[in-house]
C-alpha cells in the first residue's frame, strides 16, 4: 500500500469520526423541544405506572407481579435508574482503556447490580433494622453517594498515574532506541509485531484491567440509585417489601441493558479508532504512545467527573417540603 493511500484512508477515517462526534453533539444540543419535553413528561407517567403496578399487587396479590417487574425493567432502561455518573465513568473508561466487548458488558451489568444491592442494604439496614426514619435513610444514601464520587475521583487519579508512568517509560525507550526500526515492543494485541514478550505483557495488562474493573464496580456501585430507594420506601409503606426488592433488581436489569449498550458503543468506537490508527503509515510504532496518551486523558477525565460530582454533592440545598 502506498503512503498516499494510507494517508487518504486515515483522512476518511478521521472525517467519519469527526462527523459522528458532530452528529452526537448536534443531537444532544438540538433535540427537538417537543421530543425532549415528551421525555420529561414521560417520567411522570413512569412513576404513575410503578405506583399502579404496586397497587395492583396489593389488590390482586402476587399474580399481578409481572406488571411491576415489567414496569420496573422499563423504568430502569429508560430512566437509567440513577447511575448517570456510572454510564459516564464506565464508557469513558472503556473508550480509553483496553477492554473487550464481553468485559465491557459484564462491567456494566455488575455495576448496575451492585447499585441495586447498595440501595436494598442501605434501606434495609437503616429503616428495617434500625427502625430509623426515611429521612435518615436518605441522609445515609447521600453519604454513600458522596463516598462513591470520591472513590471515582481516586480511581481516575490511579488510572492517570499508571498511564502516565507507562507513557514516560515508552518515551524513554523511544529516545533510547530511536535508531532501531522496532520502536514498540509491548504493544497490545493490536500491534503488528509479534514480540518475544508479547503474551506476557498481554496477560499482565489483562490482570491489570480486571483489577481496575473490580475497583470501578465498587466505586460506581457504592452509590445507590435514588429511584430504587423511592420504590423500596413505597413498597414498605404498602406492606410489599419483597415486591419492592424484586422491583429494584428488575430496575437494575433494565439499567444494565442501557449501560451495556453504551459500553458496547465505547468498545466499538475504540476498536474503530485503533483500526484506523493501525492503517496510518507510521502505524504500529507510535500507536502505543497514542494509546497511553488516550488512557491518561481518560483517567484525568474520570478524576474530573469524580471531583465535580463530589463538590456538587457537598452543597445540598434544603427543600421546604423535604
Amino acid at each position: 500500500m502506498s503512503d498516499s493511500t494510507a494517508l487518504s484512508r486515515r483522512g476518511v477515517g478521521l472525517a467519519v469520526l469527526v462527523l459522528a462526534a458532530m452528529a452526537l453533539a448536534a443531537f444532544a444540543a438540538g433535540l427537538p423541544d417537543q421530543l425532549s419535553w415528551a421525555i420529561q413528561n414521560g417520567q411522570r407517567s413512569f412513576h404513575h405506572l410503578l405506583v399502579s403496578a404496586m397497587q395492583a399487587i396489593k389488590a390482586q396479590g402476587l399474580a399481578a407481579g409481572g406488571g411491576l417487574i415489567a414496569a420496573s425493567f422499563a423504568y430502569g432502561v429508560f430512566h437509567a435508574a440513577g447511575p448517570g455518573h456510572g454510564k459516564l465513568v464506565i464508557s469513558t473508561y472503556l473508550a480509553t482503556n483496553d477492554a473487550n466487548l464481553r468485559r465491557g458488558i459484564a462491567l456494566s451489568t455488575v455495576a448496575a447490580l451492585v447499585q441495586a444491592l447498595t440501595a436494598v442494604v442501605a434501606v434495609g439496614a437503616v429503616v428495617w433494622l434500625l427502625g430509623a426514619s426515611n429521612r435518615t435513610a436518605q441522609t445515609a444514601a447521600m453519604a454513600l453517594e458522596q463516598s462513591s464520587y470520591g472513590l471515582v475521583a481516586l480511581f481516575g487519579a490511579v488510572l492517570s498515574f499508571a498511564a502516565g508512568r507507562r507513557l514516560l517509560g515508552r518515551l524513554r525507550r523511544h529516545a533510547g532506541d530511536a535508531s532501531d526500526g522496532h520502536l514498540d515492543h509491548d504493544d497490545h494485541h493490536h500491534g503488528h509485531q509479534a514480540c518475544a514478550h508479547g503474551p506476557d505483557a498481554a496477560s499482565l495488562a489483562g490482570t491489570r484491567s480486571l483489577r481496575q474493573m473490580v475497583a470501578l464496580v465498587l466505586a460506581v456501585g457504592l452509590r445507590p440509585c435514588s429511584g430504587a430507594i423511592l420504590v423500596l420506601v413505597f413498597a414498605e409503606a404498602a406492606g410489599l417489601r419483597l415486591a419492592g426488592i424484586a422491583a429494584v433488581f428488575a430496575m437494575a436489569a433494565g439499567t444494565a441493558v442501557t449501560v451495556a449498550s453504551l459500553a458496547a458503543l465505547a468498545v466499538h468506537a475504540r476498536r474503530l479508532a485503533l483500526r484506523l490508527g493501525a492503517a496510518a503509515p507510521e502505524g504500529g510504532g507510535r500507536l502505543g504512545l497514542w494509546l497511553d496518551g488516550v488512557a491518561l486523558a481518560g483517567g484525568l477525565a474520570i478524576m474530573g467527573f469524580g471531583v465535580i460530582l463530589f463538590q456538587a454533592a457537598r452543597v445540598i440545598a434544603a427543600h421546604p417540603l423535604l
Binding site: I39, F78, A80, G82, G227, S261
Partner: peptide, 13 residues
C-alpha cells in the same frame, strides 16, 4: 445501539 444510547442520553435520575 446508537438509538438506545440516544434515548438514554436525556433522562438520568
Amino acid at each position: 445501539l446508537v438509538c438506545a444510547g440516544c434515548l438514554v442520553a436525556a433522562p438520568a435520575g
